[in-house]
């Protein structure tokens, strides 16, 4: 087990199975088809992301450097949370980007009954260590345990 300390963007505690990308996570490309056509597993639809394409994101600890792509990104995340089709948490190696931050904040302020902890600035070592299928526990103070 290894611990990493990050910064809390939106608070919460959760334990979930990791899915990992070292490339930027394109929120629109990843989620649009799954949300629109009712994919119960919320499989990643981004053809350009070879690490995540076709993998389920629902209830997973999504480990990523940052999000990229369309500025619908934040509202897509907000919709995913409203529809309870969101990852369990989002764990950023880098400082969070503006689109992911918007999605996390919109969900936190405007969606009742859904918590998606978001922690950023976990560092490059975090992404190098965490692998698909590992168990990730997020603590309220931004500590992330990986085993």
């Amino acid at each position: 087990m290894k611990q990493f300390k990050g910064r809390v963007v939106t608070p919460g505690e959760v334990t979930a199975e990791a899915v990992v990308t070292k490339e930027g996570f394109n929120t629109l490309a990843s989620l649009q088809m799954a949300l629109q056509f009712g994919d119960k597993e919320v499989k990643c639809g981004d053809q350009s992301n070879k690490e995540l394409y076709g993998k389920s994101l629902l209830g997973k600890a999504l480990c990523l450097p940052q999000t990229i792509g369309s500025t619908t990104g934040g509202l897509v995340l907000y919709c995913a949370c409203s529809m309870k089709k969101n990852p369990a948490c989002m764990l950023f190696a880098n400082h969070i980007d503006s689109l992911a931050a918007a999605g996390a904040v919109l969900a936190d302020v405007w969606v009742d009954g859904v918590t998606m902890p978001v922690v950023d600035s976990l560092g490059e070592e975090f992404l190098n260590y965490v692998k698909d299928g590992m168990t990730v526990t997020v603590k309220a103070d931004g500590t992330v345990e990986v085993e």
Partner: peptide, 21 residues
């Protein structure tokens, strides 16, 4: 549009998400 406004027109805008806009 944001990248054009910032780069070509010299306006100042972050990459805001929908709804935040």
């Amino acid at each position: 549009a944001v990248v054009y406004a910032n780069s070509v027109l010299g306006a100042r805008c972050n990459r805001n998400s929908g709804i935040i806009d």
